[in-house]
Nucleic acid binder design. Structure first.
Length: 257
DNA sequence: ATGGCAAACGCAGTTTGA
């Protein structure tokens, strides 16, 4: 089983690239962030033609998440369980033996910003949600754009970034709080020494110079550790004409009993 | 110390992203 995630920065613009990537990589699951589409605009037919079901949760202009899967998504959730969908950043579904939670964590803008406070509150809410979700679904994969570089190893120039947003101690502590529930950063678990990025700023030729951050993650619950295979970041997709600023990330899971 | 680039909205220039 291959699961994956990609912040596409507008599915309207990136649909051809997503279709190409699905056809080439054949993942069982692809979690999208920043679709920036309303549900009425979602390209259901183009994805169905490739053999993918779609669970989508969007809004106009901003945010928007979706889970594409070969198998039918079961027990779907769009937005928070209490019905708050003011920002479309969360969806979940069971796909085969796996519970898949897709997140687009708020960016936070800057540490002094109200949006940063919102980000921390959102992460606290996510932790509580996951604690509950884990009770019912021990085999849980949490994928998405976390907008947090977990450690300085995940930053091209930690000195320059310092404790700015994406790297601040409070954000990293919030992510650690999720790990305390029994989640593991699959890429870091498999490759403890790797320095690799999933996002490169559009500006200043950051991709050409390979100066980026690893802020897109696939976290797995402890029950999935025994079936962890390879993981990767598809830099080729970032090379495309009119690319997203994020690369797709993926993880192979072995057969689950 | 700051901007850079890209997308949405909408038709110029602002807002947002990370």
């Amino acid at each position: 089983m291959k699961i994956s995630a990609w912040n596409v920065n507008s599915l309207k613009v990136r649909l051809p690239q997503v279709l190409d990537w699905l056809a080439a990589q054949q993942p069982d699951v692809l979690c999208l962030q920043e679709t920036k589409l309303t549900d009425a605009q979602f390209p259901v037919e183009a994805l169905r033609a490739l053999g993918y079901h779609a669970l989508f949760h969007g809004q106009p202009s901003y945010n928007g998440v979706a889970i594409l899967s070969r198998a039918t998504p079961v027990d779907p959730l769009c937005g928070w369980p209490d019905g708050d969908d003011s920002q479309a950043r969360l969806c979940a579904a069971s796909v085969g033996p796996l519970r898949v939670v897709n997140v687009y964590v708020p960016n936070g803008q800057s540490v002094a910003s109200d949006k940063y406070a919102y980000k921390l509150a959102w992460l606290a809410r996510l932790r509580a949600f996951l604690a509950d979700e884990l009770l019912r679904h021990p085999r849980l994969a949490l994928l998405g754009d976390f907008n947090i570089a977990p450690t300085d190893m995940d930053v091209y120039d930690p000195g320059a970034w310092g404790e700015e947003v994406l790297c601040s101690p409070a954000e990293r502590a919030a992510l650690a709080g999720i790990h305390e529930l029994g989640f593991h950063d699959s890429f870091r678990h498999l490759y403890p020494e790797a320095r690799a990025w999933s996002w490169w700023d559009y500006r200043a030729a950051m991709f050409r110079r390979d100066l980026g951050l690893r802020i897109d993650l696939i976290l797995v619950s402890s029950a999935l550790l025994p079936v962890l295979g390879a993981a990767g970041i598809d830099r080729e997709a970032r090379r495309a004409e009119r690319p997203s600023d994020h690369a797709p990330i993926w993880l192979d899971l072995g057969d689950l009993p």
